[in-house]
Amino acid sequence: MSLLSPRRAHAVAEAPAVRFLLLGLALAAVALFLLLPLGVVFAEAFARGWAAFAEGVADPDARAAIRLTLLVAAISVSVNLVFGVAAAWAVTKFDFPGKSVLVTLIDLPFSVSPVIAGLIYVLLFGAHGLIGPWLIAHGVEVIFAVPGIVLATMFVTLPFVARELIPTMEMLGRGDEEAARTLGASGWQIFFRVTLPNVKWAALYGVLLCNARAMGEFGAVSVVSGHLRGLTNTMPLHIEILYNEYNFVAAFAVASLLALMALVTLALKSGLEALGGK
């Protein structure tokens, strides 16, 4: 196909000049709004060379932030994977009243501001919250501690796996599972031998997006964390502190690790889409 030819024949094709203009505008927008912000992260991270970059990443506080981010992402992704599978199983394999309400509620965290996601846990578990004082009296710290960070991250990443699995399992129907049941398979056998092989790529797709959001969550975590260096700072919060201290090279060095995570996510996502013919 020649450069700039339409991807398939259209009766109403715009003039070549219009086509060049539209493509030029689109590519300029991509360069300005997507490529440039991405490029700046790496350019600033290496603005003073490798040594300064390595110093920013190897700093003990940065390393603690990386460890915490990985821990929080691991917990919230696993929990939301179990939830996503359970929710998709209930919604797609059975009929019950209130199903559409349930599906709407699963998507709710996407329409709530991350700051509000953090706020609700402060109102619940904070020192002036509903059950916070009682918990603190019994030695349980949720807010300004790791459990609060995990909870806030779980909230904002809750829909990702479920919303990938529900349409896929809806499309596959119930026939295979019903046949397996008739042949005497147990519930777990049906799930692991019949359902899982059919939905593993959709589940992985959901896990991928869930992980990217979990590692990068800022607003919700910022409200509940208390920003204790080396203790309750995730990578995004560490970046904020470094940036506000005008330590730009270190801020962008840590940011470049997250940008790299985003690029890997996009690459894997494209691969999965090609695999599933999405």
């Binding site: 086509r19 919060l237 985003a262």
Partner: peptide, 29 residues
Amino acid sequence: VRYDFPGRRLVDALIDLPFALPTAVAGIS
């Protein structure tokens, strides 16, 4: 959707960057 140009798949994949890039990284950038 309509045009075929070199790098089309790359641009298509890049469109989702704002979903994958942490907001704090986008913010300082």
